[in-house]
């Protein structure tokens, strides 16, 4: 016979009723932390924290694409062979291909709004690299310089950002 101490007890927290009409709607809490790997792209994210912008290149002589990839990929989509890492020479100067001003951002946004997202062309790179402009107003064709959040890094893509080249005296030659 089951003893009283073996009675199954409710140990949860009662669901909050958000509304009762026209139907019962309850709150269903979700709080999860995923484990996400940067995999073979780990050198890129480590590089950002060290103030380096790393791209990949396919060195297979038979491949049709020999330009750099940024965002990097560990493997070439054209010939499926592993690519090699290459650091972009500093200062990294790019050209604004297009931009957008984010005013209404989704939950969890880590940047103060409004801010400018910029898509940047880089010499020798076959892709167009998305980032954000720390200050200033972008326009298509504007030159921008890459900066890095080496102190107190976020360990995410937000560890790099762009600034207008015209405002950066140090970068003027």
């Amino acid at each position: 016979m089951a003893s009283k101490s073996k009675i199954t007890k409710y140990t949860g927290k009662p669901a909050k009723v958000l509304q009762s009409e026209p139907a019962i709607v309850i709150e269903w809490p979700r709080s999860l932390a995923h484990r996400h790997t940067y995999g073979k792209l780990s050198p890129f994210f480590k590089g950002l924290t060290e103030g380096k912008l790393l791209a990949t290149r396919c060195i297979n002589p038979e491949c049709v694409e020999h330009r750099l990839w940024l965002p990097p990929r560990a493997d070439c989509p054209d010939c499926n062979q592993p690519m090699t890492w290459e650091e972009l020479p500093q200062p990294v100067i790019g050209t604004v291909h297009t931009y957008a001003r984010v005013e209404y951002a989704g939950a969890g946004i880590e940047l103060t709004t409004p801010y400018f997202q910029v898509d940047v062309e880089l010499p020798g790179v076959c892709t167009i690299f998305k980032g954000y402009l720390q200050y200033g107003t972008p326009e298509i064709g504007m030159k921008v310089k890459a900066c890095f959040r080496t102190e107190d890094p976020t360990n995410t893509i937000l560890d790099m950002y762009w600034i207008p080249l015209a405002d950066d005296k140090a970068a003027r030659f």
Binding site: P71, A105, G106, A107, E110, K130, T156, I157, L158
Partner: peptide, 11 residues
Amino acid sequence: CKDFETRLSRI
């Protein structure tokens, strides 16, 4: 792209 785009706006 979760690694290179999502955090840049989340919308």
